[in-house]
């Protein structure tokens, strides 16, 4: 089955049972609907999103699985980080509902046509979507939470080594 798809698309084999197809954003719906209806890659397993902030893009991987659950096909597309929009897959896969809700909340991607993009795990979240890389976890934690008292005597080991070396040198010179 994968052979007939290979004739039509430029599918790369990553592992013995894992394939990858890179498509443009414009042909997204067409490709997804074609592959899911005319091959045995009928199930959507996961929508994985990675933030490549240095290239100003999100890379989305729609992972399709065969009816036999023995092969996985990753369909990768890039969308811009700002005002990222994609059409929903709700018409093909009901499970896309919750995956898209998740990505909407964590990355701020708008899925046009999905009516269920309400709160997923975060309630009343007012800041930037937390999985975007410009969201700084450490700064957020430092701002919102206290640290335990009594740990201020922590020393930087590199500084400490230098200080002790200098001290030993000074003692040696003084003895001379």
């Amino acid at each position: 089955m994968i052979e007939s798809l290979k004739q039509q698309y430029n599918i790369e084999q990553k592992e013995s049972r894992l394939f990858k197809l890179i498509i443009k954003k414009e042909e997204f719906l067409k490709t997804l609907s074609f592959i899911s209806s005319s091959s045995n890659f009928i199930t959507l397993s996961q929508i994985a999103c990675a933030d490549w902030i240095e290239d100003e893009i999100f890379k989305l991987n729609y992972i399709l699985t065969t009816k036999e659950r023995d092969k996985n096909l990753m369909i990768e597309l890039e969308i811009p980080r700002e005002e990222s929009k994609l059409p929903t897959l709700l018409n093909f896969f009901p499970q896309a509902e919750v995956m898209e809700r998740d990505l909407h909340e964590m990355y701020g991607i708008e899925f046009i046509g999905n009516p269920t993009l309400y709160d997923f795990a975060l309630e009343n979240w007012k800041e930037i979507p937390p999985m975007r890389r410009e969201f700084d976890t450490l700064a957020y934690v430092n701002e919102h939470f206290d640290f335990r008292k009594g740990r201020e005597d922590n020393r930087d080991v590199k500084v400490e080594i230098k200080r002790r070396r200098a001290e030993a040198k000074r003692l040696k010179n003084a003895n001379k």
Partner: peptide
Amino acid sequence: NEAIDMIP
């Protein structure tokens, strides 16, 4: 977890 402090 940044649980370790180095102390003199």
